[in-house]
């Protein structure tokens, strides 16, 4: 397994903003030649090939780079983001990331979930990215509120200043125009509020109401669903097989 050696300079990229507030990603490798999207386009409020988005109406979106398959990574990685962003995990809207280079697991060097490594692979990168976002919000708030940066308190998705609380979203637009913060401090192990605590899984409601979406639940036009016909007796084998009786499928490579 290769060593995780993120270049700090490229650790965080500030992506497109206007209209969408602050959008952050953590492509850890410089440039994304194969990227299907123009990351620097300023007119894209929505950039799914990134990890984090804070909108002006205070929605916090996280694009989960690993697959949830029962191991709880939906909750786990979201918790990492929440911890450093200073929001409650429930405040974050989680989306499954589409296939994209940016989302590849850096220790496995591909977009793959397995090997029990999701937390170890993402423990620092995601926290760093969220911490950077938090500091950008702080800097924006300081400017916008005309307050000294050091006196702003960030907690539960709000910036406190002189007894007043302002949601992060108020500062998202400005934050998107500020110089990127690359190495905001991340918390020490003893300072965690969410990491290491037991909590209801964030997808518990979806998985208890039949609304969690699995691969088999996706409908696309002309999709055929095939299921294995099993022998009614143990060890039985087919006697005959008429290939011609099957519908002909067009296989796309």
């Amino acid at each position: 397994m290769s060593q995780l050696t993120p270049s700090r300079r490229n650790f965080l990229k500030l992506l497109g903003f206007t209209g969408g507030g602050l959008v952050l990603g953590v492509p850890l490798v410089a440039g994304c030649a194969a990227s299907t999207r123009d990351h620097n386009s300023k007119d894209k409020g929505f950039t799914p090939s990134s990890f984090l988005q804070i909108t002006e109406d205070n929605e916090i979106h996280f694009y989960l780079p690993q697959d949830e398959m029962g191991q709880g990574i939906y909750t786990g990685l979201t918790t990492l983001v929440a911890e450093e962003l200073e929001v409650n995990p429930e405040q974050i809207q989680v989306h499954f990331a589409p296939p994209h280079k940016d989302f590849r697991n850096l220790t496995l060097e591909m977009q793959l979930t397995g090997g029990s490594n999701s937390i170890s692979a993402w423990f620092r990168p995601l926290r760093q990215s969220a911490a950077n976002a938090r500091e950008l919000i702080r800097n924006a708030a300081a400017q916008q509120l005309n307050a000294p940066v050091t006196q702003l308190q960030l907690q539960e998705g709000q910036v406190s200043w002189r007894g007043k609380k302002h949601p992060y979203g108020d500062f998202a637009a400005l934050a998107g125009t500020l110089p990127v913060v690359e190495d905001a401090p991340i918390k020490k192990n003893g300072d965690f509020r969410h990491i290491g605590k037991s909590r209801p899984r964030l997808d518990g409601i979806a998985k208890s109401t039949g609304t969690a979406v699995f691969g088999i639940d996706i409908d696309i036009p002309n999709l055929y669903r095939a299921v294995v016909v099993r022998s009614p007796v143990h060890g039985g084998i087919p006697k005959q097989f008429f290939r011609g009786s099957l519908p002909r499928f067009q296989i796309c490579a």
Binding site: E68, G70, R201, A206, K207
Partner: peptide, 8 residues
């Protein structure tokens, strides 16, 4: 009770 894991 955090009953579901994958949920399937």
């Amino acid at each position: 009770n955090n009953a579901p894991q994958c949920g399937y």
